[in-house]
């Protein structure tokens, strides 16, 4: 039950992101995760990466260090990227709204970089990975309490078709 809810929530979030985030770098060669409803069953599909591997890691307040759970997720992401060399990724760092704009941009950059460095340490070529920070500009949860803030303090690995950075 818990898993299926999470899955539905992620698909919803992705759907939103696809149409409301014009700044996503992947742009032209981004991956359409809604292309096929069955795609999530295919372990080589971006939807599988998204939903089963887990495309995001969360951070504590004002921190960019990776939790054990985050390391697990990133280890699985690294394994997937090792197996699916047709894809590269942009890691998007985000912050919650409790901070000033410039600092949150810098904090998001730290978080994206933390995730990237971990993937590189697990054997992913650095030139397959780009980072970008959105600071507090793109929350996925919009309430003003910790239940939302904890979801917004994140680094999301967004797949791109193509091998190069």
């Amino acid at each position: 039950m818990k898993t299926s809810f999470k899955l539905a929530a992620l698909v919803l979030v992705l759907g939103l992101a696809a149409c409301t985030n014009p700044d996503r770098f992947a742009g032209g060669n981004s991956v359409d995760l809604n292309a096929s409803a069955n795609a999530a069953a295919d372990p080589a599909s971006p939807a599988y990466f998204q939903n089963t591997v887990g495309d995001r890691v969360l951070f504590a307040v004002d921190q960019s260090t990776l939790s054990d759970e985050a390391r697990q997720t990133l280890t699985a992401q690294a394994a997937w990227l090792q197996a699916n060399t047709d894809y590269s990724a942009t890691i998007e760092g985000h912050a919650d709204e409790q901070g000033t704009r410039e600092y949150n941009l810098a904090l998001g950059a730290r978080r994206a970089s933390s995730a990237k460095e971990f993937l590189v340490s697990r054997g992913i070529a650095a030139d397959r990975l780009r980072t970008v920070s959105y600071g507090k500009e793109r929350p996925i949860a919009i309430c003003s309490d910790e239940s939302c803030y904890s979801q917004n303090r994140r680094a999301v690995t967004v797949l791109r078709v193509g091998t190069g950075g």
Binding site: S64, E102, L105, A109, R110, R111, S113, K116, R130, T131
Partner: peptide
Amino acid sequence: GTMTFAPRFGPDGQAVVFSLSSGGNT
């Protein structure tokens, strides 16, 4: 591979100070 933000002019209108993030450091 870098991000730049928080620019501001100096009083001469020619100097610009800003932040640059590279490898997670700003």
